[in-house]
Design a protein around this nucleic acid. Sequence first.
DNA 1: TTGTACGCGTTATCAT
DNA 2: ATGATAACGCGTACAA
Lengths: 374, 374
Amino acid sequence: MPRRTTVTEVAERAGVSIASVSRVLNGLGARPDTEERVRRAALELGYVPDAAAKALKLGRSLQLAFAVDDIANPVYAQMMHGVESGLLGSGSRLLVSSTGRRPDDLVELVQGLSRGAADGLIISPLRRSPQLIDALVKAPVPVVVIGDAGPDAALDTVRTDSARGVEAAVAHLVATGRRRIAFVNGPADTVPGRSRLEGFTRATAPGSDAERAGIRADVVEARDFTVAAGEVAWSRVVAATDEGTPVDAVVAANDLIALGLARAALTAGRSVPGDLAVVGVDDIEMAAIFRPSLTTVSLEAHERGRLAAELLLRRLENPQAPVVGEFVAPRLVVRESSGAPTEAAIEAAPTPTAENAHQRTRQRTRPVTPRGQR
Amino acid sequence: MPRRTTVTEVAERAGVSIASVSRVLNGLGARPDTEERVRRAALELGYVPDAAAKALKLGRSLQLAFAVDDIANPVYAQMMHGVESGLLGSGSRLLVSSTGRRPDDLVELVQGLSRGAADGLIISPLRRSPQLIDALVKAPVPVVVIGDAGPDAALDTVRTDSARGVEAAVAHLVATGRRRIAFVNGPADTVPGRSRLEGFTRATAPGSDAERAGIRADVVEARDFTVAAGEVAWSRVVAATDEGTPVDAVVAANDLIALGLARAALTAGRSVPGDLAVVGVDDIEMAAIFRPSLTTVSLEAHERGRLAAELLLRRLENPQAPVVGEFVAPRLVVRESSGAPTEAAIEAAPTPTAENAHQRTRQRTRPVTPRGQR
DNA sequence: TTGTACGCGTTATCAT
DNA sequence: ATGATAACGCGTACAA
């Protein structure tokens, strides 16, 4: 672990002043032989400029930050790829901060990152506190929020309407003949938890199509937005089944929960979508790979990430630009797990299996809404 | 986007010197009323110390970095969680750098990060070049490599033996009666690609158990280590099937490829594990969730991450400590996709389905190696 | 073209 | 206990 080399040492070795070293290394002009000697000296000494000193001097770190609760959640990884796409050619490096595992203050992270460590921040907070919003608004660098930043925060924002997405999911299940729908939420004290629950509540409220169709609605809250929590939540759904009409459809707050729950249900001998339709939210890659493939509500994470990056670059260029709120519409992606006939389902099962036998049986009794997707 | 506040402004507002401000804010003693006024002034002005200036002065940034090719790959996310575990209570923030998407030099990243942006680095490089190793060795901060750093690099390292892991996978398939095994590798110019191919080659070489058992072996190279590449690779495996003995088993270089390939095979009407056994590497969460659940070789990514963090902290504490190479053994996790009877398989299918009907048919013709897992 | 000198914001040393 | 000031390493304005 060699010591750090400084411009001074390079200058001494090259027999020039530190100013010449700096000039050469930053591509400003110098006499050919000076240039040559400086470059050689720098190379020999393995000189690399100190990022902290450089950032202090320039006032910019050439780094941007992307902060999410857990980058291990595929939807955030997808979002990050979107951010990376949007940042191509920006000349800045992207640093990712996965904040959820450490209990330390998110506010502290934002402050630390935004004061010298990064020139801009894209954040998609799982939980929103007034303190956090305050810290974001007061940050001395541009901040873009992916998600709802609250009513009157002057922050560039990329939003979607996950409530409407959940409504579409419920409508889809009602239209395909399901009778009792359980919503398996993540923690309700989170931004997505709150809005997705709101969507479900609205979709099944008195006066709604679902209510008029006589649909029964239940709500279960999973421990968090993970596969493991989804698996555990299955038993809670089963518990609801014990009272009267069996639950024949589940809308999960995200795909991880949906996949865990579907797995548990299948393991318990239920057929999906025969006995149970399952719909998720996010459209992570595994939703299409799982069998049965998962019907889900895409919230266009990649696109939201890309847009956020765009907004960030725009504001970095012009800090005075008016505050902007981008909007991305949710999109229902119908696959096998909801039992509606899809092209994918047909492809997937050229020979009959126990699973889609169930599926066909059920479908005969229900209105069919063909939607080619996948 | 408010301007940055400095100690000077806080000092003025509090009517004290900047030294007092620094002392109060860093928890050193001061007269109660001084303390009070400084704190109030700092709060009112929303003062946050500048990270760059602080890092420059202290010589440390209180940040550590974790660099991988693509944090969207679940195995790296898992590894990151391990790193986070090992870093708990270190007082440093972890920054993740997902390097693969940008073509810029990895060497540059290492240099930039290790000169002022981070106090230490954990890196799991997908590709290894002499230049990269050189940069790692010359980095002015501690570096821990997860993976093979090459024969004589003086770097703390956490390794596993994925070649041996692949050998175990092949042995498992041979023992359960498979006749023709295809290895679907990722790019062979990568560290894992090379070593996993080596394992397969060794396992099927003349003189090996597999060769003596008359197993045929094929090698296919997928575009990269992704689900999409695995799906595409399926057709390459099929092509191999056309010549004589059909391929009845696949070992994939990682779980993403394995899942993509299994998906494609199932979609094409093959049964897994009936017609085709599939084994992956990494043991990502989805391996257990997928149906059939995926037999895989765990490389203990979480544990490797945790160990790497431990090594890093150790070296930060004592830069003179002797170079250490930790080692984590691979572990075969037998699940449904390889057709060996497992408890999971029994749980999963209380009622016969087309899938495990195939399975049972095949198993009757093969030796049975019961291993309860999952 | 090149060198000297200053300042970025912070912490720490040394007087007072 | 507190204030003046040096120093971290860099880039650059200005002088030569």
